[in-house]
Amino acid sequence: MWSYDQQQRLYLENEVLHQEGFTQFTVYRYQATDTYEASGTTSSSSGKFYMLAIPIPSGFPQQRPPMYLTYPFPLYTASGSLVSSLGTSHDMHTLTPSSAGQVQICHWRDDRWRSAIMLHKVFLKGLLWIEAYEQHLATGRPLAEFVSTMKERI
């Protein structure tokens, strides 16, 4: 299922993640299903723990990988509603949640994604989202106010 180039790329992604200081994240291979996932537990500047997971799609790197926040679960907004219930939301920078209800963080939209974007940049956007989320909880203001809309290049 996975081409040689894809396997090389995933190996490289793992190496770059760690060299860029994202040691909390690793690219894992599920032996039973021959699938890959980049995931790990991270903490915000306030010390709270979060888990991020990027299941690698079969079309990677041409296909944009989704990034889910898997812990805390479920995730609530400042007003007490489920973040996942918002679905795709500009105010919260989220896309369609996973089938299990995990929040999907918008990092790059499909129409902006390109194969040269590496996973450490995706995780970086995840970390920024987490910080913005905590500001949203503290102020009640939309998360979008704390992150500028992404640019094509970062």
């Binding site: 190996y11 490289l12 894992y28 291979r29 995931s39």
Partner: peptide, 22 residues
């Protein structure tokens, strides 16, 4: 190119990435 910029050699990657199972 990316590997070189991180001081890595793709030849050492092997046929399959030796990543831990989960």
């Amino acid at each position: 190119s990316i590997a070189a910029s991180y001081g890595l050699d793709p030849k050492t990657f092997g046929d399959l990435p030796s990543l831990p199972s989960k």
